[in-house]
Nucleic acid binder design. Structure first.
Lengths: 234, 234
DNA sequence: CAAGTCTAAACTGTCGACAGTCGGCGATTA
DNA sequence: TAATCGCCGACTGTCGACAGTTTAGACTTG
């Protein structure tokens, strides 16, 4: 009778995770600009709107605070983070620093499978360009860079990337369309992959620098163009 | 799990910002090993011990979760994070990557004032060595490295450093004494400062690599020596 | 008409309560 | 004799309530 637990492949279900769900909804609203930068996040309001009590809303807010999407003012509540131009600089500075390293590590760990994943992801970028879907292209762009961090194999690095990305998403959601030529953006990923395949650390760093440096300047320019911030409601 | 949440010796607290205070107390208890890795953090128990309700305890726990000190198991509660040897590798890998960059930036921003701060911090390390106070020396060691991040001027980088440090503190609290010769550890900071003063990027990176690489190997060795983990008290 | 001043409404921080889940233990059954 | 069942207490997830604080707006006052 060596049958303790019959292993039937059933996916575990995680039903009520209110905190997580609230966090996701809030993030969505922020990224989509429905909660503009500087606006107050009224706990009771969100709670009522989502049909839950304030407790899970507060816990979700703490999460987003730690993630940098909200800032907490004691006794005054949570507010949607306002980004300044130098926030962009900070984020890209860190991204550059981390992604350089990630790419070098990724090259070291590269297998045929992971290489193909990167290749296919670039193809997806071309597809998005054809479909002219800027929002999804930005998302798929992140996915490419995230893949590099994933392949690098350092979970903390991956989390850091996700955190930075979620901050960037917010900014980019605000400035809307990012590039003029969506095919161009897909193309600029090619040399990065090529360098990783080649495996020369210097070349990898150089191409990452070039690629991200381009995005940095572009986003920086756009952010500076939209002076302070769009009417921080309330 | 017949446990009526045994007291961990947490003195009661008052005033406002309960969440922050609870978070600090919990961190303390974890770092000092009073809440050993793997142990369950019983909300009601902590709340009772600190003389507060469960709400602020939960919010503090979420904070520590995001910081990596706790892990949340839905419906089962929060548990003190258990570190494996490869966690050390991840943390030091990231630290190295970030601190290299920070040091180069710091060199660029160096002023006489900030230089003096670094100098004085090394002197403090010697003092701690004289006093033979390993715990405080480790703490002052962090402060030196933190100073570099501070001088670099990227707030996100600084926060990342703090997060990594708080994870490391936990590990180091567990392995106890870190180095045999506390004066040696103070001395090894000299070339780092010298390189930053000199301002040669390559030299800076080389010395940071050497310095942190040493710590990495040392901590890694010690962690591997203490095989699984000290009786994860339930 | 600008600058305070005061007051009521709106919110946050925290609490205690309650329903439902989890895990261990003894009883049960093959 | 060992796997399983069912029960019971401990604990989590969530809620509504309340006190104290902040804010917006009406009302004075110089």
């Amino acid at each position: 009778m060596r049958t303790i637990s019959p292993p039937v492949g059933l996916p575990a279900l995680n039903e009520t995770d209110l905190v997580g769900q609230v966090a996701r909804r809030l993030t969505e609203a922020i990224v989509q600009g429905r909660l503009p930068p500087g606006s107050k996040v009224v706990e009771a309001g969100i709670a009522r709107e989502l049909g839950v009590s304030r407790a899970p809303v507060r816990e979700a807010a703490r999460l987003l605070e730690q993630q940098g999407l909200l800032v907490a003012n004691p006794r005054r509540g949570f507010f949607v983070r306002q980004f300044a131009a130098d926030d962009i600089d900070e984020i890209y500075d860190l991204r550059l620093c981390v992604e350089r390293h990630a790419a070098v590590l990724a090259a070291r760990n590269l297998t045929p499978e992971t290489r193909d994943k990167l290749r296919r992801q670039i193809d997806v970028l071309y597809e998005m360009a054809d479909l002219d879907d800027p929002a999804r292209q930005v998302e798929e762009d992140y996915r490419f860079h995230r893949l590099i961090c994933e392949i690098a194999g350092n979970r903390r690095m991956l989390r850091l990337f996700d955190d930075l990305a979620s901050e960037l998403r917010m900014v980019i959601g605000l400035i809307g369309r990012l590039y003029d030529d969506p095919h161009e953006i897909a193309r600029t990923h090619e040399p990065v992959l090529a360098a990783i395949e080649a495996g020369h650390p210097e070349r990898i760093v150089a191409h990452i620098d070039y690629h991200l440096g381009h995005a940095w300047r572009e986003v920086g320019r756009l952010v500076r163009e939209i002076p302070p911030w769009p009417a921080a409601a309330k």
